[in-house]
Simulated scan of single mutants.
Amino acid sequence: MALEPSSANPPDRRDYFRIEDRIGLEIRRLDADTPTPNDPFNGDHLDDLRAELRRLDQDIRLHLASLAERDRLMTTLIKSLNGKLDTLARIMAFEQNPLQQDQWQQVTLSEGGIAFITPTASYQRGDRLAVRMTLPPELFRPQGIAEVVDARADDAGNWRVHAEFTSIHDSDRQQIARHVMRWQVRQRQKN
């Protein structure tokens, strides 16, 4: 007699790699009947500068690849200087707008969504959320719009909320993907 799969426990199908990490997390509930705002976090006067910095960083990476073929010593020096500038930028960003201690929390993160814990039943299935993350140690700040797909009480009396990204820029999704990959590499190096 052949066994049939149980519908009570459907197979775990994942489209993205997931990690458990401690990140900075800012969440704003969006009204269901209003259009998605362009910037739910009220805009930052430094957004244009951050976009320019990302563009310049991509240019440097592109030119480094061709320079590496001709001059390895110069390539190494430029990579070191670029790393130094990245570190300085992260220090300045963190000093300018440090997150409060309660905004750092354990989450499950992937390119497809995020799961987090709240002390109360603040969110319900179908709620739309604006989510901004601060991903250490690089302090990338991707943001997107997510929809709550599940919210359940856990054994400790908290609520575990699972949300799926419904609107996220490709560059923000790529930042999350790089963060997940780097986190996995760091975990392998620890073991």
Results as ranks from 00 to 15, higher is better:
residue 40 P to W: 05
residue 136 P to S: 11
residue 32 A to F: 03
residue 179 H to E: 13
residue 118 T to W: 03
residue 123 Y to P: 03
residue 29 R to T: 14
residue 105 Q to V: 00
residue 71 D to Q: 08
residue 188 R to D: 10
residue 3 L to Q: 13
residue 91 I to L: 15
residue 128 R to T: 04
residue 72 R to Q: 12
residue 56 L to N: 08
residue 38 N to V: 12
residue 38 N to G: 14
residue 92 M to C: 04
residue 40 P to L: 03
residue 31 D to T: 03
residue 11 P to L: 04
residue 1 M to W: 05
residue 141 R to Y: 00
residue 23 I to S: 02
residue 27 I to N: 01
residue 102 D to R: 10
residue 172 D to K: 06
residue 121 A to K: 08
residue 15 D to S: 15
residue 179 H to D: 12
residue 104 W to R: 08
residue 133 M to C: 04
residue 140 F to N: 14
residue 43 G to F: 05
residue 130 A to T: 06
residue 85 L to G: 01
residue 168 I to Q: 03
residue 138 E to R: 14
residue 177 A to Q: 13
residue 150 D to Q: 12
residue 64 L to N: 07
residue 112 G to K: 02
residue 146 A to L: 06
residue 51 A to M: 15
residue 131 V to D: 03
residue 90 R to H: 11
residue 40 P to D: 08
residue 138 E to T: 13
residue 107 V to F: 02
residue 30 L to M: 13
residue 160 R to A: 05
residue 44 D to F: 10
residue 176 I to Y: 05
residue 47 D to C: 00
residue 35 P to C: 06
residue 50 R to C: 02
residue 100 Q to G: 07
residue 37 P to M: 07
residue 95 E to H: 12
residue 49 L to Q: 11
residue 179 H to P: 08
residue 130 A to W: 07
residue 161 V to N: 02
residue 17 F to W: 00
residue 15 D to M: 10
residue 170 D to S: 10
residue 169 H to V: 01
residue 66 S to D: 13
residue 34 T to Y: 01
residue 53 L to E: 11
residue 129 L to M: 04
residue 160 R to C: 07
residue 19 I to S: 06
residue 135 L to R: 05
residue 39 D to C: 08
residue 87 T to Q: 15
residue 14 R to Y: 02
residue 139 L to K: 09
residue 122 S to M: 06
residue 126 G to D: 02
residue 30 L to C: 03
residue 159 W to C: 04
residue 51 A to R: 15
residue 33 D to V: 07
residue 11 P to I: 10
residue 48 D to F: 10
residue 45 H to Y: 10
residue 86 D to C: 05
residue 141 R to T: 15
residue 163 A to F: 01
residue 189 Q to N: 11
residue 104 W to D: 02
residue 37 P to I: 04
residue 170 D to N: 09
residue 96 Q to C: 01
residue 21 D to R: 05
residue 116 F to A: 01
residue 103 Q to H: 11
residue 99 L to M: 08
residue 132 R to G: 01
residue 136 P to D: 10
residue 112 G to W: 00
residue 96 Q to G: 07
residue 10 P to W: 03
residue 99 L to R: 12
residue 14 R to M: 07
residue 136 P to G: 12
residue 29 R to V: 06
residue 157 G to N: 00
residue 16 Y to A: 14
residue 116 F to L: 02
residue 23 I to T: 05
residue 167 S to H: 13
residue 57 D to T: 15
residue 84 K to T: 12
residue 145 I to K: 04
residue 30 L to D: 02
residue 142 P to I: 09
residue 129 L to H: 04
residue 57 D to P: 03
residue 47 D to I: 09
residue 132 R to L: 10
residue 72 R to G: 10
residue 152 R to S: 03
residue 39 D to M: 09
residue 70 R to Q: 14
residue 178 R to L: 13
residue 56 L to V: 08
residue 11 P to N: 07
residue 143 Q to P: 00
residue 186 R to M: 10
residue 167 S to D: 11
residue 47 D to G: 03
residue 38 N to H: 14
residue 26 E to K: 10
residue 29 R to M: 07
residue 4 E to N: 07
residue 113 G to Y: 01
residue 81 L to N: 05
residue 64 L to F: 10
residue 32 A to R: 09
residue 108 T to A: 09
residue 71 D to P: 02
residue 167 S to T: 09
residue 72 R to N: 09
residue 7 S to C: 01
residue 155 D to N: 05
residue 86 D to K: 15
residue 138 E to I: 09
residue 111 E to Q: 14
residue 80 S to M: 14
residue 50 R to W: 13
residue 119 P to A: 03
residue 69 E to M: 03
